[in-house]
Simulated assay, not measured.
Amino acid sequence: MREQLGLTVGQVAWAVGAFWGRPLHPGVVMAWEVGEALPDTDGVRALAAALWCEPADLVGEPRTLLQCRTLARLTLEQAAAEARMPRDRYAESEARGRWRGSPEQTAGMVAALRPPPAVYVAACGLTGRLRVTLREAVTSWWPNYLGPLGRIVPVRAADLERALDQLHRTYQRLDNLADAGHGQAPHDAELRAAAFLDRIDQHLWDALRGSTG
Rank of each mutant, 00 (worst) to 15 (best):
T8Y: 05
V59S: 05
R73N: 11
L5A: 14
N176Y: 05
E61Y: 04
D40M: 08
I152A: 02
E94R: 05
R98I: 11
R173C: 06
G60V: 07
R169Q: 13
T106I: 11
E104V: 14
V153E: 08
E190V: 02
E161G: 07
G128T: 13
P26N: 09
Q4S: 14
V12Q: 03
M30N: 10
P148G: 09
M109S: 05
A18N: 12
T106N: 08
D188C: 07
G35Y: 01
R169S: 13
D42I: 12
R22S: 14
M1C: 06
V28T: 14
V16K: 02
W14Y: 13
G60D: 05
G101I: 08
L208V: 10
P39V: 08
R2P: 01
A193D: 09
P186E: 07
R156Y: 00
D179M: 12
L208I: 08
P86Y: 06
A189L: 08
V34Q: 10
G6C: 12
R22T: 14
A111L: 05
T139K: 06
G147M: 03
A158M: 04
V16P: 01
T41L: 10
G125H: 08
D198G: 09
D206W: 12
A37V: 10
Y120P: 00
Q11T: 15
P116H: 09
R87M: 13
G60R: 00
E190F: 09
D201N: 02
A37F: 02
E77P: 00
A79L: 08
T8M: 06
P103M: 03
R135N: 10
A189V: 09
C53L: 03
D159G: 06
A194L: 12
R129W: 01
T133F: 00
T133Y: 01
R63I: 07
V153C: 06
P62Q: 04
V16H: 04
L113D: 01
G183L: 10
Q105I: 07
Q4F: 04
P23A: 04
L65W: 00
R84M: 13
Q105R: 12
R100Y: 14
C68M: 06
G128H: 01
L65D: 00
D201T: 14
V155D: 03
L197P: 04
L58C: 06
G27E: 09
D188F: 10
V12L: 12
S211G: 00
L126M: 14
E92C: 11
P154G: 12
E136R: 15
